[in-house]
Write a protein that binds this DNA or RNA. Sequence first.
DNA 1: CGCCCTTATCGTTTATCGACGATGAACGAA
DNA 2: TTCGTTCATCGTCGATAAACGATAAGGGCG
Lengths: 107, 107
Amino acid sequence: MTDSDLQISELGKALAHPARIKILRLLQKTPGCIGGDIVGAVGLAQSTVSEHLRILKSAGLIRGDISGPRICYALNPEGLAPLGAFIGTLDAPEDDTCWTPDTSKET
Amino acid sequence: MTDSDLQISELGKALAHPARIKILRLLQKTPGCIGGDIVGAVGLAQSTVSEHLRILKSAGLIRGDISGPRICYALNPEGLAPLGAFIGTLDAPEDDTCWTPDTSKET
DNA sequence: CGCCCTTATCGTTTATCGACGATGAACGAA
DNA sequence: TTCGTTCATCGTCGATAAACGATAAGGGCG
């Protein structure tokens, strides 16, 4: 259970930066995949973007296929599946009753 | 659009720590809600847990209703809705074609 | 071979996070 | 009012993350 918490938190960490969200959105709406155009889209230095791509890749959210001298990045939607499942789990609360402090013991 | 990226990244940041995932899970499976039992459950200092609860609350993922001297924490599943929607968006790729570098221009 | 383009890596600086103990505020009970 | 309990806040420290420029690595082309 704790390792699952770790996995979810790792995915959360991968999403914990606006630039990475932007990159994911960009890859989603891009017909195929693009290379250094990401750099221009996010408005950060090339090395910084490369680092974000590395983080996303290591989190399993994107793929990077070598296509000649460039790299073809593409989404890997399955990577977010555990996080989606977690959110779905939380979305179904069993009960909403608030526990009233019964200091006056009953039994 | 950029503000939306911000919102998603804020939610991601709130999930970017195993202790916070654990807290959310704990609140989910708890019939009502508990107070300082969270401290015992996550195995961290009280002040640290309080800080995690503050982060979760400021992200809109939990509620904290005052119940006498204690605080009654409860999940707020709607808080994760934007993130869930985002994941759902990424889950429906329009195309998977990888862009082939056509340095040999055509047309 | 030498050149250019694209991407990754290195090293550094700055900012943020995570954790803790100690302290303070709010409340019920005695 | 005084005490004990519960939770939040403050200050501090080490660790991690983010950003940049500079530099190297890989591959196509003349």
